[in-house]
Design a protein around this nucleic acid. Structure first.
Lengths: 162, 162
DNA sequence: GAGAATTCCTTGACGCGTCAACCAATTTGG
DNA sequence: CCAAATTGGTTGACGCGTCAAGGAATTCTC
Protein backbone atom coordinates (compact mmCIF):
# COMPACT_ATOMS: atom_id res chain seq x y z
CA UNK A 1 0.00 0.00 0.00
CA UNK A 2 2.63 2.41 -0.99
CA UNK A 3 0.10 5.13 -1.61
CA UNK A 4 -2.42 4.23 1.01
CA UNK A 5 -1.28 6.87 3.43
CA UNK A 6 -2.48 9.58 1.11
CA UNK A 7 -6.03 8.28 0.73
CA UNK A 8 -8.90 9.00 2.97
CA UNK A 9 -10.99 5.91 3.30
CA UNK A 10 -9.99 2.30 3.05
CA UNK A 11 -12.06 2.11 -0.09
CA UNK A 12 -9.91 4.70 -1.78
CA UNK A 13 -6.69 3.28 -0.46
CA UNK A 14 -7.64 -0.06 -1.95
CA UNK A 15 -8.96 1.55 -5.14
CA UNK A 16 -12.06 -0.49 -4.97
CA UNK A 17 -15.01 0.64 -7.01
CA UNK A 18 -17.51 -1.70 -5.44
CA UNK A 19 -18.59 -0.69 -1.95
CA UNK A 20 -17.76 -3.00 0.91
CA UNK A 21 -20.08 -5.92 1.32
CA UNK A 22 -20.79 -5.05 4.95
CA UNK A 23 -19.76 -2.58 7.60
CA UNK A 24 -18.10 -5.53 9.30
CA UNK A 25 -15.89 -6.02 6.28
CA UNK A 26 -15.14 -2.33 6.04
CA UNK A 27 -14.22 -2.18 9.71
CA UNK A 28 -11.92 -5.17 9.45
CA UNK A 29 -10.15 -3.90 6.35
CA UNK A 30 -9.81 -0.41 7.74
CA UNK A 31 -8.41 -1.83 10.94
CA UNK A 32 -5.78 -3.83 9.10
CA UNK A 33 -4.83 -0.90 6.88
CA UNK A 34 -4.53 1.42 9.82
CA UNK A 35 -2.42 -0.98 11.82
CA UNK A 36 -0.15 -1.37 8.84
CA UNK A 37 0.27 2.39 8.63
CA UNK A 38 1.13 2.62 12.30
CA UNK A 39 3.48 -0.33 12.13
CA UNK A 40 5.21 1.38 9.25
CA UNK A 41 5.64 4.68 11.06
CA UNK A 42 7.15 2.84 14.01
CA UNK A 43 9.48 0.93 11.76
CA UNK A 44 10.65 4.14 10.11
CA UNK A 45 11.24 5.87 13.42
CA UNK A 46 13.19 2.96 14.86
CA UNK A 47 15.39 2.29 11.88
CA UNK A 48 16.40 5.92 11.82
CA UNK A 49 17.94 5.81 15.30
CA UNK A 50 19.80 2.74 16.59
CA UNK A 51 19.18 -0.42 14.68
CA UNK A 52 16.27 -2.05 16.40
CA UNK A 53 13.27 -3.58 14.69
CA UNK A 54 9.84 -2.94 16.14
CA UNK A 55 9.69 -6.39 17.67
CA UNK A 56 13.12 -6.09 19.18
CA UNK A 57 12.11 -2.78 20.65
CA UNK A 58 9.01 -4.41 22.01
CA UNK A 59 10.98 -7.16 23.72
CA UNK A 60 13.44 -4.70 25.17
CA UNK A 61 10.63 -2.65 26.66
CA UNK A 62 9.19 -5.74 28.23
CA UNK A 63 12.55 -6.64 29.70
CA UNK A 64 13.07 -3.15 31.00
CA UNK A 65 9.70 -3.41 32.70
CA UNK A 66 10.77 -6.67 34.30
CA UNK A 67 13.79 -5.07 35.93
CA UNK A 68 16.90 -6.75 37.33
CA UNK A 69 15.37 -10.15 37.88
CA UNK A 70 14.56 -10.56 34.20
CA UNK A 71 12.02 -12.91 32.67
CA UNK A 72 12.02 -16.46 31.33
CA UNK A 73 11.70 -16.70 27.53
CA UNK A 74 8.11 -17.85 27.39
CA UNK A 75 7.00 -15.13 29.77
CA UNK A 76 8.30 -12.65 27.26
CA UNK A 77 6.46 -14.37 24.46
CA UNK A 78 3.22 -14.11 26.39
CA UNK A 79 3.56 -10.38 26.75
CA UNK A 80 4.44 -9.67 23.18
CA UNK A 81 2.11 -8.34 20.55
CA UNK A 82 3.28 -11.09 18.19
CA UNK A 83 3.45 -14.81 18.82
CA UNK A 84 5.85 -17.31 20.31
CA UNK A 85 8.67 -19.43 18.98
CA UNK A 86 10.27 -16.73 16.96
CA UNK A 87 11.09 -15.21 20.33
CA UNK A 88 14.03 -17.54 20.79
CA UNK A 89 15.63 -16.34 17.58
CA UNK A 90 14.66 -12.76 18.26
CA UNK A 91 16.52 -12.98 21.55
CA UNK A 92 19.48 -14.60 19.80
CA UNK A 93 19.88 -11.49 17.67
CA UNK A 94 19.42 -8.99 20.46
CA UNK A 95 21.85 -10.94 22.59
CA UNK A 96 24.39 -10.84 19.77
CA UNK A 97 24.10 -7.04 19.88
CA UNK A 98 24.78 -7.11 23.59
CA UNK A 99 21.43 -5.64 24.57
CA UNK A 100 20.18 -8.61 26.55
CA UNK A 101 21.88 -11.42 28.47
CA UNK A 102 20.50 -14.92 29.03
CA UNK A 103 21.19 -17.44 31.77
CA UNK A 104 19.69 -20.76 32.60
CA UNK A 105 17.72 -20.49 35.83
CA UNK A 106 19.11 -22.36 38.81
CA UNK A 107 15.79 -23.16 40.49
CA UNK A 108 14.22 -24.56 37.34
CA UNK A 109 16.92 -25.49 34.94
CA UNK A 110 14.50 -25.65 32.03
CA UNK A 111 14.00 -21.91 32.12
CA UNK A 112 16.25 -19.39 30.44
CA UNK A 113 16.18 -16.03 32.17
CA UNK A 114 16.57 -12.95 29.99
CA UNK A 115 17.71 -9.59 31.29
CA UNK A 116 18.28 -6.29 29.61
CA UNK A 117 21.88 -5.04 29.80
CA UNK A 118 22.95 -1.51 30.61
CA UNK A 119 23.72 -0.96 26.93
CA UNK A 120 20.18 -2.05 26.21
CA UNK A 121 18.84 0.35 28.80
CA UNK A 122 20.84 3.20 27.33
CA UNK A 123 19.50 2.46 23.88
CA UNK A 124 15.93 2.46 25.14
CA UNK A 125 16.47 5.68 27.04
CA UNK A 126 17.47 7.35 23.77
CA UNK A 127 14.38 6.01 22.06
CA UNK A 128 11.78 6.81 24.69
CA UNK A 129 11.03 10.36 23.86
CA UNK A 130 10.96 10.05 20.06
CA UNK A 131 8.59 7.13 20.35
CA UNK A 132 6.36 8.95 22.81
CA UNK A 133 6.21 11.79 20.34
CA UNK A 134 5.37 9.40 17.55
CA UNK A 135 2.56 7.75 19.53
CA UNK A 136 1.16 11.16 20.15
CA UNK A 137 1.46 12.19 16.53
CA UNK A 138 -0.39 9.08 15.38
CA UNK A 139 -3.54 10.20 17.11
CA UNK A 140 -3.05 13.91 17.02
CA UNK A 141 -6.30 14.48 15.16
CA UNK A 142 -8.37 12.68 17.78
CA UNK A 143 -9.78 14.49 20.77
CA UNK A 144 -9.38 12.98 24.22
CA UNK A 145 -12.93 11.65 24.04
CA UNK A 146 -12.34 10.17 20.62
CA UNK A 147 -9.22 8.42 21.84
CA UNK A 148 -11.13 6.85 24.66
CA UNK A 149 -13.87 5.80 22.27
CA UNK A 150 -11.39 4.30 19.85
CA UNK A 151 -9.69 2.36 22.61
CA UNK A 152 -13.01 1.13 23.92
CA UNK A 153 -14.26 -0.01 20.52
CA UNK A 154 -11.01 -1.72 19.67
CA UNK A 155 -11.11 -3.58 22.95
CA UNK A 156 -14.61 -4.74 22.18
CA UNK A 157 -13.47 -6.11 18.85
CA UNK A 158 -10.50 -7.77 20.43
CA UNK A 159 -12.66 -9.44 23.01
CA UNK A 160 -15.10 -11.01 20.67
CA UNK A 161 -12.69 -12.23 18.08
CA UNK A 162 -12.47 -15.83 19.40
CA UNK B 1 0.22 -12.99 22.75
CA UNK B 2 -1.03 -16.47 23.20
CA UNK B 3 -3.35 -15.45 25.97
CA UNK B 4 -4.21 -11.97 24.87
CA UNK B 5 -7.54 -12.91 23.44
CA UNK B 6 -8.81 -13.68 26.91
CA UNK B 7 -7.94 -10.31 28.42
CA UNK B 8 -10.06 -7.24 28.36
CA UNK B 9 -7.84 -4.23 27.96
CA UNK B 10 -4.49 -3.95 26.28
CA UNK B 11 -3.02 -3.26 29.67
CA UNK B 12 -4.13 -6.65 30.92
CA UNK B 13 -3.15 -8.43 27.74
CA UNK B 14 0.32 -7.03 28.10
CA UNK B 15 0.40 -7.64 31.85
CA UNK B 16 1.65 -4.22 32.47
CA UNK B 17 1.27 -2.87 35.97
CA UNK B 18 2.20 0.68 35.09
CA UNK B 19 -0.51 2.62 33.29
CA UNK B 20 0.20 3.78 29.75
CA UNK B 21 2.24 6.92 29.49
CA UNK B 22 -0.40 8.59 27.33
CA UNK B 23 -3.73 7.85 25.72
CA UNK B 24 -1.84 8.07 22.44
CA UNK B 25 0.35 5.20 23.51
CA UNK B 26 -2.62 3.21 24.74
CA UNK B 27 -4.45 3.76 21.47
CA UNK B 28 -1.48 2.69 19.40
CA UNK B 29 -0.82 -0.44 21.42
CA UNK B 30 -4.47 -1.39 21.51
CA UNK B 31 -4.67 -0.90 17.77
CA UNK B 32 -1.72 -3.18 17.15
CA UNK B 33 -3.02 -5.82 19.53
CA UNK B 34 -6.45 -5.76 17.96
CA UNK B 35 -5.12 -5.99 14.43
CA UNK B 36 -3.02 -8.94 15.50
CA UNK B 37 -6.10 -10.66 16.88
CA UNK B 38 -8.02 -10.08 13.67
CA UNK B 39 -5.12 -11.17 11.53
CA UNK B 40 -4.96 -14.32 13.57
CA UNK B 41 -8.64 -15.13 13.18
CA UNK B 42 -8.35 -14.67 9.44
CA UNK B 43 -5.32 -16.89 9.32
CA UNK B 44 -7.13 -19.61 11.24
CA UNK B 45 -10.19 -19.44 9.02
CA UNK B 46 -8.16 -19.58 5.82
CA UNK B 47 -5.85 -22.38 6.80
CA UNK B 48 -8.83 -24.50 7.71
CA UNK B 49 -10.27 -24.44 4.20
CA UNK B 50 -8.02 -24.54 1.11
CA UNK B 51 -4.42 -23.66 1.71
CA UNK B 52 -4.23 -19.94 1.22
CA UNK B 53 -2.44 -17.52 3.46
CA UNK B 54 -4.11 -14.22 4.28
CA UNK B 55 -1.90 -12.31 1.86
CA UNK B 56 -2.48 -14.79 -0.91
CA UNK B 57 -6.19 -14.47 -0.31
CA UNK B 58 -5.83 -10.72 -0.45
CA UNK B 59 -4.08 -10.83 -3.80
CA UNK B 60 -6.62 -13.22 -5.25
CA UNK B 61 -9.45 -10.93 -4.22
CA UNK B 62 -7.72 -8.03 -5.90
CA UNK B 63 -7.29 -10.05 -9.07
CA UNK B 64 -10.87 -11.19 -9.02
CA UNK B 65 -11.89 -7.55 -8.79
CA UNK B 66 -9.74 -6.75 -11.80
CA UNK B 67 -11.56 -9.27 -13.95
CA UNK B 68 -10.44 -10.87 -17.21
CA UNK B 69 -7.95 -8.19 -18.17
CA UNK B 70 -5.86 -8.75 -15.08
CA UNK B 71 -3.40 -6.37 -13.48
CA UNK B 72 0.32 -5.69 -13.75
CA UNK B 73 2.36 -6.76 -10.73
CA UNK B 74 2.97 -3.32 -9.26
CA UNK B 75 -0.67 -2.38 -9.55
CA UNK B 76 -1.42 -5.32 -7.29
CA UNK B 77 1.23 -4.23 -4.86
CA UNK B 78 -0.34 -0.80 -4.63
CA UNK B 79 -3.69 -2.21 -3.69
CA UNK B 80 -2.44 -4.60 -1.07
CA UNK B 81 -2.58 -4.08 2.62
CA UNK B 82 1.09 -5.05 2.85
CA UNK B 83 4.02 -3.65 0.87
CA UNK B 84 5.76 -4.32 -2.40
CA UNK B 85 8.58 -6.54 -3.55
CA UNK B 86 7.42 -9.62 -1.77
CA UNK B 87 4.55 -9.55 -4.23
CA UNK B 88 6.66 -11.11 -6.94
CA UNK B 89 7.41 -14.11 -4.78
CA UNK B 90 3.88 -14.22 -3.47
CA UNK B 91 2.67 -14.49 -7.04
CA UNK B 92 5.27 -17.16 -7.75
CA UNK B 93 3.69 -19.35 -5.12
CA UNK B 94 0.11 -18.73 -6.13
CA UNK B 95 1.02 -19.36 -9.74
CA UNK B 96 2.64 -22.64 -8.76
CA UNK B 97 -0.72 -23.65 -7.28
CA UNK B 98 -2.43 -22.79 -10.56
CA UNK B 99 -4.58 -20.02 -9.09
CA UNK B 100 -3.13 -17.20 -11.14
CA UNK B 101 -1.46 -16.96 -14.54
CA UNK B 102 1.13 -14.40 -15.59
CA UNK B 103 2.05 -13.12 -19.05
CA UNK B 104 4.33 -10.40 -20.19
CA UNK B 105 2.27 -7.56 -21.63
CA UNK B 106 2.59 -7.04 -25.37
CA UNK B 107 2.11 -3.28 -25.35
CA UNK B 108 4.66 -2.67 -22.64
CA UNK B 109 6.94 -5.61 -22.39
CA UNK B 110 8.23 -4.53 -19.00
CA UNK B 111 4.91 -5.29 -17.41
CA UNK B 112 3.80 -8.68 -16.25
CA UNK B 113 0.05 -9.08 -16.32
CA UNK B 114 -1.50 -11.29 -13.66
CA UNK B 115 -4.90 -12.90 -13.98
CA UNK B 116 -6.86 -15.14 -11.71
CA UNK B 117 -7.61 -18.58 -13.18
CA UNK B 118 -10.91 -20.39 -13.01
CA UNK B 119 -9.48 -22.66 -10.32
CA UNK B 120 -8.61 -19.50 -8.41
CA UNK B 121 -12.11 -18.18 -8.84
CA UNK B 122 -13.59 -21.43 -7.63
CA UNK B 123 -11.42 -21.35 -4.55
CA UNK B 124 -12.47 -17.80 -3.75
CA UNK B 125 -16.10 -18.63 -4.27
CA UNK B 126 -15.82 -21.31 -1.62
CA UNK B 127 -14.17 -18.88 0.76
CA UNK B 128 -16.47 -15.90 0.32
CA UNK B 129 -19.22 -16.80 2.66
CA UNK B 130 -17.09 -18.09 5.54
CA UNK B 131 -15.00 -14.94 5.39
CA UNK B 132 -18.04 -12.70 5.29
CA UNK B 133 -19.28 -14.49 8.35
CA UNK B 134 -15.95 -14.04 10.04
CA UNK B 135 -15.84 -10.30 9.29
CA UNK B 136 -19.25 -10.03 10.78
CA UNK B 137 -18.31 -12.01 13.85
CA UNK B 138 -15.29 -9.81 14.49
CA UNK B 139 -17.49 -6.83 15.11
CA UNK B 140 -20.58 -8.56 16.36
CA UNK B 141 -20.55 -6.66 19.63
CA UNK B 142 -20.56 -3.28 17.93
CA UNK B 143 -23.78 -1.54 16.99
CA UNK B 144 -24.12 -0.06 13.53
CA UNK B 145 -23.33 3.37 14.94
CA UNK B 146 -20.28 2.07 16.75
CA UNK B 147 -19.00 0.45 13.58
CA UNK B 148 -19.28 3.70 11.72
CA UNK B 149 -17.52 5.49 14.55
CA UNK B 150 -14.73 2.95 14.64
CA UNK B 151 -14.23 3.22 10.89
CA UNK B 152 -14.21 6.98 11.06
CA UNK B 153 -11.70 7.16 13.90
CA UNK B 154 -9.41 4.62 12.29
CA UNK B 155 -9.43 6.60 9.08
CA UNK B 156 -8.49 9.71 10.99
CA UNK B 157 -5.53 7.91 12.50
CA UNK B 158 -4.52 6.55 9.15
CA UNK B 159 -4.62 9.95 7.58
CA UNK B 160 -2.39 11.66 10.04
CA UNK B 161 0.22 9.02 10.40
CA UNK B 162 2.67 10.51 7.82
C1' DG C 1 18.76 8.39 -32.98
C1' DA C 2 22.34 7.31 -29.20
C1' DG C 3 22.95 7.87 -24.38
C1' DA C 4 20.79 8.91 -19.96
C1' DA C 5 17.04 8.54 -17.00
C1' DT C 6 12.96 6.15 -15.66
C1' DT C 7 9.76 2.36 -15.11
C1' DC C 8 8.66 -2.40 -13.97
C1' DC C 9 9.94 -5.98 -12.04
C1' DT C 10 13.15 -9.60 -9.99
C1' DT C 11 16.76 -11.26 -6.89
C1' DG C 12 19.72 -11.79 -2.71
C1' DA C 13 20.31 -11.22 2.08
C1' DC C 14 18.21 -11.09 6.21
C1' DG C 15 14.49 -10.44 10.20
C1' DC C 16 10.31 -12.34 11.83
C1' DG C 17 5.96 -15.38 11.90
C1' DT C 18 3.85 -20.16 11.66
C1' DC C 19 3.81 -25.14 12.41
C1' DA C 20 5.64 -29.49 13.71
C1' DA C 21 9.02 -32.10 15.89
C1' DC C 22 12.23 -32.60 19.43
C1' DC C 23 15.37 -32.48 23.78
C1' DA C 24 15.85 -31.81 28.73
C1' DA C 25 14.20 -30.77 33.01
C1' DT C 26 10.36 -31.28 36.19
C1' DT C 27 6.09 -33.00 37.95
C1' DT C 28 2.65 -36.62 38.58
C1' DG C 29 0.57 -40.96 39.64
C1' DG C 30 0.44 -45.76 40.52
C1' DC D 1 10.45 -44.15 43.23
C1' DC D 2 10.16 -44.99 38.26
C1' DA D 3 7.58 -44.54 34.05
C1' DA D 4 4.48 -41.28 31.79
C1' DA D 5 2.92 -36.71 31.13
C1' DT D 6 3.86 -31.89 31.23
C1' DT D 7 6.60 -27.75 30.82
C1' DG D 8 10.24 -24.70 28.83
C1' DG D 9 12.66 -23.88 25.13
C1' DT D 10 15.06 -24.79 20.59
C1' DT D 11 15.36 -26.14 15.77
C1' DG D 12 14.04 -26.95 10.78
C1' DA D 13 11.22 -25.81 6.96
C1' DC D 14 8.86 -22.46 4.85
C1' DG D 15 5.86 -17.97 3.80
C1' DC D 16 6.19 -13.11 3.90
C1' DG D 17 8.26 -8.41 4.97
C1' DT D 18 12.25 -5.01 4.33
C1' DC D 19 16.15 -2.98 1.85
C1' DA D 20 19.53 -2.64 -1.73
C1' DA D 21 21.04 -3.78 -6.13
C1' DG D 22 20.32 -5.03 -10.78
C1' DG D 23 18.34 -6.32 -15.65
C1' DA D 24 15.31 -5.31 -19.37
C1' DA D 25 12.06 -2.37 -21.63
C1' DT D 26 10.62 2.32 -22.53
C1' DT D 27 10.87 7.24 -22.58
C1' DC D 28 13.35 11.56 -22.52
C1' DT D 29 16.84 14.73 -24.10
C1' DC D 30 19.90 16.78 -26.84
Amino acid sequence: MSTAREGTTAKEAIRQTKPFRSTGQEAVITLLLTAETVRWALHAELSGRGDLTAQQYNVMRILRGAGRKGLPTLEIAERMIERTPGVTRLLDRIERQGWVARDRSTEDRRQVICRITSEGLALLRALDSPIDTLDERMVRSLSAAERRTLIRLLNKVRNDAP
